[in-house]
């Protein structure tokens, strides 16, 4: 099969996560809190799917994020694919059927995405203390929120598999 149906489920879940993230950020606009929750989007696709399906899912998720955020088009796609490539290459080391490893990976990837966006902001912003204060606040708030959001999101994705009668096991279980 060209595309694993689970890739579509992952993509829809990613779109929902992005929508909720932007909705919360819009409501919190007057406060210093901003949530960036892109890390969990790549984790399960990279751990569960074959390479072709994972790649298509991550590519479309990245383009979806790029269209929603005012970043250079392709930045988040490249970032998510880079993160995904790392997780995919090392996936035999992680247990995908439980949340512990995916949550840790999600935190790592989210931190990478925050770093990538800060890097892309350019030199004039880097020299500002206010910019780094807000990046630090965003990082703290996002990773705090991830402690709650990431387990919910992974369980939600697995629940969708059950709901649509899809395979609930990763393609390649880790070698023990």
């Amino acid at each position: 099969m060209l595309l694993d149906p689970r890739a579509i489920v992952f993509f829809c879940a990613n779109a929902l996560l992005l929508f909720l993230m932007l909705l919360v950020n819009s409501a919190l606009a007057a406060s210093p809190v901003y949530l960036l929750l892109l890390g969990p989007m790549v984790v399960l696709p990279a751990l569960y799917l074959r390479h072709q399906s994972y790649f298509i899912c991550t590519l479309f998720s990245g383009l979806w994020v790029d269209a929603a955020l005012p970043v250079p088009f392709g930045l988040c796609t490249s970032g998510l694919l880079l993160c995904g490539a790392f997780v995919f290459m090392t996936r035999s080391r992680f247990r995908a059927e439980h949340n512990y490893h995916p949550i840790l990976i999600a935190h790592g990837l989210n931190f990478f995405m925050i770093g990538l966006l800060s890097l892309a902001a350019g030199f004039p912003e880097w020299s500002s203390v206010a910019f780094w204060i807000q990046v630090a606040t965003t990082s703290l708030a996002s990773h705090g929120a991830l402690l709650v959001v990431a387990p919910w999101f992974f369980n939600f994705e697995r629940m969708l598999f059950m709901l649509f009668h899809l395979e609930n096991e990763p393609e390649e279980l880790p070698l023990l």
């Binding site: 950020n25 901003y34 960036l36 970043v71 912003e125």
Partner: peptide, 11 residues
């Protein structure tokens, strides 16, 4: 309909 106010963008 949406406010995007962060360290990276103000839209």
């Amino acid at each position: 309909i949406r406010r995007d106010l962060s360290a990276w963008w103000q839209h």
